[in-house]
């Protein structure tokens, strides 16, 4: 059996009485770039957040490199792992958010350095040089000492991506990272993601940018009402959708327009 980078088995998640994930199965290999598409409320962001344990989930398992995330089963009892253990596991994945969530009281470089120093326990100098390397990579080395409030939305998102990726995660999660951006700033962020993909970074993207999903990913997952509705390579998915639902969704999305 090949060892998967990410393996999701029968994932169930509810908020109170509302079941938002109704048994999701998904595997992902090293170097995969997978886009998750679907209408709002289909559960795609929730699934991403479960992988990073930002959401609790009630059933199923998520494993990274064969290591179960967030929960353990001891003597038939499923229980949440210790906070410290979960914190360590969260660092296995990097996450970029729709709202960037940069720490406003720290410079761009400091934002990137925080995890390196406090989680990876690197010295300040080591952290600084790694931060500079990644800020350079996203084209913002000159802005290293600027505060988030002094940067444009696109620049903030690039710093946020640098902050996540500097932790050297096994897998990057992107949660609608361009949705909060002005249209003219979207491209600079997509370019950064694309270049990371070309370097072989494994990533999982929730996105509304269909054209981008088509270009960057080697697999696309269509989420529909808490389940995987359809998945396959982008060419088949976008040009020959099998299900009614997906072709409906693609008609109303931006794919055809550009």
């Amino acid at each position: 059996m090949p060892n998967h980078l990410l393996e999701i088995r029968d994932l169930h998640k509810s908020y109170g009485d509302v079941e938002v994930l109704k048994g999701v199965d998904c595997t992902m290999a090293q170097g995969d770039v997978i886009s998750i598409i679907g209408s709002s409320g289909s559960g795609k962001t929730t699934m991403l957040r479960c992988i990073n344990m930002l959401e609790e989930f009630q059933g199923g398992t998520i494993s990274i490199d064969g290591e179960e995330i967030g929960y353990e089963t001891l003597g038939g009892q499923r229980r949440r792992k210790k906070e410290k253990e979960i914190a360590r596991q969260r660092a296995l994945t990097g996450m970029a958010f729709q709202q960037f969530n940069l720490f406003p009281h720290m410079s761009a470089a400091r934002n990137v350095m925080l995890g390196l120093m406090k989680v990876k326990k690197l010295s300040k100098d080591e952290a600084r040089s790694i931060a500079e390397k990644w800020l350079d990579r996203v084209g913002l080395l000159a802005r290293a000492d600027h505060f988030p409030g002094q940067l444009s939305g696109g620049q903030q998102q690039r710093v946020a991506i640098a902050r996540a990726i500097a932790m050297n995660p096994r897998l990057m999660l992107f949660d609608e990272v361009t949705s909060a951006l002005d249209p003219e700033l979207v491209n600079e962020v997509l370019q950064v993601i694309k270049s990371l993909a070309q370097d072989g970074m494994s990533m999982l993207l929730v996105t509304h940018e269909m054209r981008f999903a088509y270009e960057v990913s080697n697999r696309v997952i269509f989420m529909n009402q808490g389940r995987i509705g359809e998945e396959g390579n982008p060419r088949e998915m976008f040009h020959k959708p099998k299900s009614e639902r997906l072709s409906e969704f693609l008609k109303t999305s931006s794919f055809g327009e550009r």
Binding site: N52, M53, L54, E83, K84, A87, R88, R90, A91, T93, G94, M95, F97, Q99, F100, N101, L102, F103, L114, G115, K118, V119, A160, R163, A164, M167
Partner: peptide, 18 residues
């Protein structure tokens, strides 16, 4: 403080005290 701040901190692996 927006909830996203805690989430971003969690995402890079910080514990609650950190």
């Amino acid at each position: 403080i927006p909830k996203g701040q805690t989430e971003a901190a969690k995402a890079i692996g910080l514990t609650f005290p950190q």
